[in-house]
Design a protein around this nucleic acid. Structure first.
Lengths: 243, 243
DNA sequence: CGTAAAATTGACGCTAATCAAGGTCCGTGG
DNA sequence: CCACGGACCTTGATTAGCGTCAATTTTACG
């Protein structure tokens, strides 16, 4: 248990830059949570009472629109925070957090966390940093979706996921979460048919290999070219690309 | 000058909940800035050294993509913060902030603000609140753009702008900022042609009146129906609406 | 009154959303 | 072990939506 705590302290942005004693004091106030695969940390619309730092497992963040359409907002892994942004605001959770595998997390009640932040201001600054980087990333995705076309958006989504969950395997880099066509569609603002077609095309080109719920990037570079909207003409000396 | 300071303290989320002395101490560390219409608080890509609280004027936040396409990220008015999210993070400004009229703001250097936040933790919590609400709104827009169609997105964008800059006039509610078709297009991820067509249609229906760089909503309710994707059939007993 | 920015409108074509049909994979229970 | 059902994936056909280009008009302002 102490080991785990140490791990978290090392890993997590929230506790970075705090001396060991302070870190321990903050962790002493926390509660341990375990959520089974398929369970939920919280549901959209509930009052945001608790905030979490994941230290094991993966979580899928999903938002429902009024008409019942889903949007996959993000995937989170160890070291990332859940509900941090809203809990301190007294708001409701704006989305649901589903464990896609067995998860463990430390958690604080929002009131406890507020007290801690008042006592250890560095904690609040760290919180702002976390929010800040998430904000920036969301803004990027916003810009993507409003300027790029579907194929590029999918390429970018896969590359982001590789950065987060990439795992070297024999024939490339595996995105190590269960990922359906539907999921990809919901991340990129399109539908599963388009995703399927595009992945098929890429597979024919030999850029990826994909099975049920899984994608492996073989030629990530090609996808980067697509994602960055570099037409082949712009890249010198890459004739081999066209064949 | 003291008057102005008082105003800011009252208005601004950043200083809310602080006692008068503390608020004054924080303001004492600030610098006054004045930016003429058409000038920039900062440009995308510059290191985010300064953060601002607007107390006069309107600002347009614009992001450029690699290919040079613009995205209008937001419009800000008095009481809102510029660069707060990134400055504390040591990052670069991810967008440019252009004054669309004469603007005045108080500003702090990021290092000063960090010191202040360490000294007055409530200030950090307030900062988190500001970021939090902006994050939530961005997430809404993200969801909009990935699930709604152009007409709905435009309706929603106008309704948001009305809430922020709405001003009662003779024949409805005016969006009180200079707002071209191009601007609306960049906010909603489409092009000026579509915007023009749709606004023309709405004008024919009598829902809006629009001149060069300006839009007045006459029948906001109709737009809400469109924005919320409520077909009229779903709304019971609202026959008077159709008149 | 002349100019440039802003807005309108029509025509065209492509992207991607939608619908339909069928195939594949996997866990479960007989 | 096999059969079944449900989740997941693929592919084709169709078409609405919307992006793009071109041409013209309107508006503001010096």
């Amino acid at each position: 248990m102490n080991n785990t705590h140490q791990d978290i302290v090392e890993r997590c942005f929230l506790l970075r830059g705090l001396d060991a004693d302070t870190g321990q004091a903050i962790l002493d106030e926390s509660h341990m949570r375990r959520i089974e695969a398929g369970g939920f940390f919280f549901h959209q619309g509930e009052p945001a009472e608790w905030l979490y730092i994941l230290y094991r497992g993966r979580v899928k963040l999903v938002q429902l629109t009024q008409e019942g359409e889903q949007v996959v907002v993000n995937y989170f892994g160890p070291g990332q925070g859940l509900g941090i942004i809203v809990a301190l605001n007294g708001a409701d959770y704006p989305l649901s957090a589903e464990a896609i595998e067995v998860c463990e997390a430390v958690s604080w009640h929002r009131d406890e966390m507020k007290q801690l932040m008042l006592r250890y201001p560095q904690l609040a600054l760290n919180g702002m940093n976390m929010m800040s980087s998430r904000f920036t990333r969301l803004q990027e995705r916003f810009r993507d979706i409003s300027t790029k076309r579907v194929e590029q958006r999918i390429a970018r989504a896969l590359l982001r996921l590789v950065r987060q969950f990439g795992k070297r395997v024999a024939d490339g880099v595996l995105i190590d979460i269960p990922l359906t066509r539907q999921d990809i569609a919901e991340m990129t603002g399109t539908n599963l048919y388009n995703v399927s077609r595009i992945l098929s095309k890429w597979e024919q080109e030999g850029w990826i290999v994909s099975h049920r719920k899984q994608v492996i990037l073989c030629k990530a570079h090609e996808l980067v070219v697509l994602a960055e909207d570099l037409t082949k003409d712009l890249i010198l000396g890459t004739d081999e690309v066209s064949e």
